[in-house]
Design a protein around this nucleic acid. Structure first.
Length: 550
RNA sequence: GGCCCCGUGGUCAAGCGGUUAAGACAUCGCCCUUUCACGGCGGAGACAUGGGUUCGAUUCCCGUCGGGGUCACCA
């Protein structure tokens, strides 16, 4: 009896690997094309780090006319979550990241290298496992979890390197006859890889991001097929990325230390290994300690958070690109109006250590991104956000024409307003422009220098009686406010006031403030001339009346 | 603990043996013919540490310290 008998006993129905090698041929792509993937587990929401990875992967693939594929790693059924795949597909889609190949819904995939869901590739893995067993490079292991636990305890107590290797790999030297007998006796087993490695030898690895890294060889006989017949991550990775003809594996750097194992697996399987690019994670400052953004503790770890906050997806992507390649910022400054698709991302410019997530900076990017939007775009986006998260705002935006006027204030010029960083800022920003809201609320008016009721009322009355004309252009409009100031004994020019502070009660700016506060209930607003234009005479009168009575 | 990675202002970061050590966000001040938001100008603010190597180290080597990752029938 030999390895072949053992292999046939374990996987009697498995196809010869030649079948798969032919079914999934080398891709016919142009020189330098990158085939890469995002391979998440459907265990809950998409993490910002996952978005980061897929953004990078997608860009690299499209830059090189390669392939970006979405593969679902659902080999751990215990951790699976309902609609997990749909969630991933939709989250990516929300950010405009569409896979060229891979899963497109809970059950469907597209492309010729599928299935793209590992649980549906069981026979494939088994064929390759069988292939390894036939060659004596893998073997059944009958150790129970309890035995393994006991072994670990012993190793720990003796302060030696834990794991299933060398003399500790009890089942590695079981004879074929004995193994067959155990199996026929119904003993439970899993399949382990028979590692040819030695811990005292080093391997060299060149990582596209991390550079040259030396490791001890792997000597662990890791399990490749679990008791449920599904592969472990490592084995699935080797088989899938070979068969899907992946050229670059872009993944989180928590995988860096398994590179020796992966390289070994590729080698023993007779596969050409892909290039690896290990991305540093996005971190968070937690009481002075850096740690990865955590699904459990940090709401901002979920990509859905950005949607809820109304942070434009363009901003999130720009921010992420910023972290990825620091020259992005320079590129953006030189190419203010270009799409980020035109930016050429370079893997070798990626940071080797994890960046702290900076919400303030993200918001700043958001401000800039939104400032470049047209009023129409602001409107559409704000409305879309409002529909999901703010009914009141949605209501306000029903009058599109009016909303467009508001969003048009100081927009579209060389120095557009930058006061909206996220869609959830919009309501607060425009609320006072609505008569039904503004006139209904009771509030204090934060008058500043001029705040005596008598003075305020006089300014408001006189302005409407004598100086307001809705046909004025901006210059005329402001000249008239100066005249108003002059008539009431305030300085017409701020400079004049500053030169002779004792000669005046206040200056034209203070008078403007009275108008502004009466008009909007606040001291800080966009350009008052434009606000008055949008509001119209009738509204202005009502607002002044209300302000006077206040 | 073993192994691996990392350590430039508060944050993201340029830098590859000789620089006044860029830039962005944040912060402070001034200026922008009325506020705010912009914009402009300017300020403060950094090479973790100790040894080497070198004519010269932020840059190269070693130690220390600090941070991170990894050591599953999870990915």
């Amino acid at each position: 009896m030999d390895y072949k008998d053992l292999a046939n006993l374990i996987f009697p129905k498995a196809k010869d690997i030649v079948y798969y090698e032919e079914k999934y041929p080398e891709r016919n792509l142009k020189e330098g094309a990158i085939v890469t993937r995002f391979a998440p587990s459907p265990t809950g929401f998409v993490h910002i780090g996952g978005l980061y990875q897929s953004l990078i992967a997608k860009k690299l693939a499209s830059q090189t006319e390669g392939v970006f594929l979405l593969r679902i790693e659902d080999t751990d059924q215990k951790r699976e979550v309902e609609n997990g795949i749909t969630d991933i597909v939709q989250s990516l889609d929300n950010f405009g990241i569409e896979p060229d190949e891979g899963m497109i819904s809970e059950t469907e995939g597209k492309g010729n290298y599928g299935p793209y869901r590992q649980s549906m590739r069981k026979e494939i893995y088994q064929s390759y496992a069988k292939y390894l067993i036939e060659q004596g490079k893998a073997y059944p292991c009958f150790c129970t979890p309890e035995e393994l636990e006991e072994m670990r305890t012993k190793q720990e107590a003796a302060k030696i390197r834990p794991g299933y290797y060398g003399v500790w790999a009890k089942c590695r030297n079981i004879t074929v006859e004995e193994a067959i007998q155990k199996i026929n006796n119904g003993e439970k087993y899993i399949i382990r890889f028979k590692s040819p490695g030695r811990e005292d030898r080093k391997i060299k690895h060149h990582d596209v991001i991390k550079g040259n890294v030396d490791f001890p060889e792997n000597d662990q006989d890791i399990v490749i097929i679990k008791a449920d017949g599904l592969p472990t991550y490592h084995f699935a990775h080797a088989v899938d990325d070979h068969l899907m003809r992946t050229t670059h594996v872009i993944r989180g750097d928590e995988w860096l230390s398994s590179v020796p194992l992966h390289l070994q697996l590729f080698h023993e399987l007779g596969f050409k290994p892909p290039k690896y690019a290990h991305i540093a994670p996005i971190m968070k400052n937690d009481n002075g300690n850096k740690r990865k953004l955590s699904k459990r503790k940090d709401p901002e770890a979920a990509v859905s958070y950005y949607d809820e906050m109304g942070i434009p997806k363009e901003a999130v992507k720009e921010y992420l690109l910023n972290i990825a390649n620091s020259n992005f910022e320079n590129w953006r400054r030189a190419n203010k109006d270009k799409s980020i698709d035109e930016f050429e991302l370079q893997l070798n410019k990626m940071s080797v250590s994890g960046a702290l997530f900076d919400m303030v900076k993200l918001l700043d990017v958001g401000k800039t991104v939104i400032s470049k939007f047209t009023a129409e775009e602001v409107y559409e986006n704000a409305l879309k956000w409002a529909k999901s998260y703010d009914k009141e705002l949605e209501e306000m935006l029903q009058d599109k024409e009016y909303a467009l006027k508001i969003f048009g204030i100081e927009r579209g010029n060389k120095k557009p307003r930058k006061d909206i960083a996220k869609w959830s800022d919009v309501k607060e920003n425009i609320e006072y422009m609505y008569d039904d809201k503004f006139l209904a609320i009771k509030q204090d008016y934060p008058y500043q220098v001029i705040n005596e009721k008598e003075d305020v009322n006089k300014i408001l009355d006189l302005y409407m009686e004598k100086y307001y004309d809705e046909n004025d252009d901006k210059q005329q409009w402001f000249d008239r406010i100066k005249e108003l100031a002059g008539e009431l004994g305030y300085a017409r020019e701020v400079k004049e006031y500053k030169a002779n502070p004792d000669s005046y009660k206040a200056h034209v700016g203070d008078v403007s403030t009275v108008l502004r506060v009466a008009l909007t209930g606040r001291t800080n607003t966009p350009d008052m001339y434009e606000i008055m234009q949008v509001l119209g005479k009738e509204s202005i009168e009502k607002r002044f009346e209300k302000a006077k009575k206040n």
